[in-house]
Design a protein around this nucleic acid. Structure first.
Length: 273
DNA sequence: GCCACTGTTAGCAT
DNA sequence: CATGCTAACAGTGG
């Protein structure tokens, strides 16, 4: 669930809470979420200060003094929460980091356990296996660079938007919203897109993601920011989850179909092949 | 109880 | 290499 706007929201929230804090202890309750070969790697973070937080696609990079970085991916149900340490916590909290000042701790929760953590040297963070293959950031991608990324690709447009190697950070919700904003059918073959529609697509990517970030992301079910608060964008969704409701533009009923295994929502009248 | 469904992506097949 | 399908897990709703 956390796509670019949700991850950006978490990063901005936690930056205010964590920067400057010194780690007291790292406790790991479910070792398989750590991708390092030895899970004891995370113990190296004790005694270090948080220098900053970054986002890359849907990944969160937490930089510590001494040149170490903790990389998080929340996948579908992961949460990164900062708050008062509460006893043993619930069974879905897999990692907790306590700090020398204050009673609050940072917790990594993940009901489905798809998310992961990897500790790396900061100077090698970009080369971590999960970060290395990511495409560029959509919000700093100008039109010519965007067109070059799409050139020579095949398949359905929606699958391309979801491909993190082409552009990093777009997931199922925003792919649908972007295609609605651009007025393009999600099933369209990429090769059939003319330059007019490529331009519309490019501006829709930026407009939708920008707006979703300003509304602090979308909470369908699990998403929370670093303080545990829900996003505000769910009421602004135009098509995602709105099958059977009238299109906000033309009134036709929103359809829901399956495209390469993912549910896809679109307006059959506004969005053209 | 059982089955279908869920926002991601690694790994495998084609 | 590029693209497409599925499993990994746990919970929810019909």
């Amino acid at each position: 669930m956390p796509e670019l706007p949700e991850v950006e929201t978490i990063v901005r929230c936690l930056r205010r809470r964590l920067v400057g804090l010194e780690v007291r202890a790292v406790r790991l309750d479910f070792p398989p979420i750590v991708r390092n070969r030895g899970t004891s790697y995370l113990q190296k973070f004790a005694g270090r200060r948080v220098l900053g937080l970054r986002r890359r696609g849907k990944m969160i990079l937490l930089d510590f003094s001494g040149g170490l970085t903790m990389i998080f991916h929340l996948r579908m149900t992961g949460q990164l929460l900062f708050g008062p340490a509460a006893g043993p916590g619930d069974k879905h909290t897999h990692l907790r980091i306590s700090f020398r000042t204050g009673e609050s701790e940072l917790r990594f929760r993940d009901v489905r356990k798809f998310g992961f953590i990897r500790g790396v040297r900061t100077d090698r963070a970009e080369r971590a296996p999960e970060v290395r293959g990511l495409g560029p950031e959509p919000l700093s991608l100008d039109l010519p660079a965007f067109l070059r990324r799409l050139k020579g690709r095949r398949g359905r447009l929606k699958s391309l938007l979801l491909n993190q190697k082409i552009i990093a950070g777009i997931g199922n919700i925003y792919a649908d919203e972007i295609l609605f904003a651009a007025g393009i059918d999600p099933r369209v073959e990429i090769s059939r897109l003319g330059s007019r529609r490529m331009e519309r697509l490019h501006s829709a990517v930026q407009a939708v993601l920008d707006e979703a970030v300003s509304f602090k992301g979308t909470t369908v079910r699990d998403f929370r920011d670093g303080d545990g608060l829900e996003g505000l964008f769910q009421s602004r969704l135009r098509v995602y989850g709105r099958q059977g409701e009238p299109c906000p533009r033309c009134g036709a009923l929103i359809k829901r179909i399956r495209i390469s295994g993912r549910s896809s929502h679109f307006c059959p009248r506004c969005q053209r092949r």
